[in-house]
Amino acid sequence: MSYATTMLRAHPRPLPHIDRAALAECIEACIEGAQTATACAEACLSEPDLPDLADCIRATLDCADVAGTTAKVLSRHPTYDANLRRALLAACRAASALSAEECERHAERHSHCRVCADACRRCEAACQRLLDV
């Protein structure tokens, strides 16, 4: 069991009508997406074709910031503000998709971009699943 799931279960107030498993999965995917995107941007800065990676670096840093913030807000009790939560999920889904697209363009040459694209696609899908609930 993940820490996100454990914390959701440990909260003294019941969760409103929200899929606890989808919420925990999304929190975890956002955290992993943020970490992976940050690491990918750093790795891109060390590549010899750095000028070709400028858009990728920007997209991964944007994804890292949005995904990290989304994970933090989702970790708060979900009665906080459903409209804010949905807006963050939509923004995170969009940032993750953009980062994945940029990384996929470089995935054949840079393994860190391949890993990042996978993590960003997972984050994008998890955000979409939670939006669909």
Rank of each mutant, 00 (worst) to 15 (best):
S2Y: 12
Y3A: 11
A4K: 01
A4Y: 04
T5V: 12
T5I: 14
T6Q: 13
T6M: 12
L8K: 02
R9V: 13
R9K: 11
A10H: 02
H11C: 06
H11M: 12
R13C: 12
L15V: 03
P16K: 04
P16L: 02
H17C: 08
A22T: 07
A22N: 04
L23S: 04
E25R: 08
I27W: 11
E28D: 15
A29R: 04
I31G: 00
E32D: 15
A34M: 05
Q35L: 11
Q35E: 14
A37Q: 01
E42R: 06
C44N: 05
L45N: 07
P48K: 02
P48T: 03
L50S: 05
P51A: 08
P51T: 05
A54Y: 11
D55L: 06
R58S: 15
R58W: 12
A59G: 09
A59P: 06
T60M: 06
T60C: 12
L61S: 10
L61R: 08
D62N: 08
D62R: 01
C63P: 06
A64P: 01
D65W: 13
V66Y: 06
A67M: 08
A67K: 01
G68T: 06
G68N: 04
T69V: 13
T70S: 09
K72N: 13
K72W: 13
V73K: 02
L74V: 01
L74Q: 00
R76C: 13
R76E: 15
H77L: 02
H77I: 00
H77Q: 03
P78E: 02
T79F: 05
T79Y: 05
N83T: 15
L84T: 12
A87T: 12
L89E: 14
L89K: 06
A90G: 14
C92H: 10
C92Q: 12
A94D: 14
A94S: 08
A95H: 07
A95W: 11
A97S: 10
A97T: 05
S99Q: 05
S99E: 09
A100T: 06
A100G: 09
C103I: 01
C103W: 00
H106G: 01
H106D: 13
E108G: 00
H110G: 01
H112D: 10
C113P: 00
R114M: 02
V115N: 12
C116V: 08
D118A: 15
C120V: 03
R122D: 15
C127Q: 09
Q128N: 15
Q128A: 15
R129L: 12
R129Y: 07
R129C: 11
L130A: 07
D132F: 09
V133K: 00
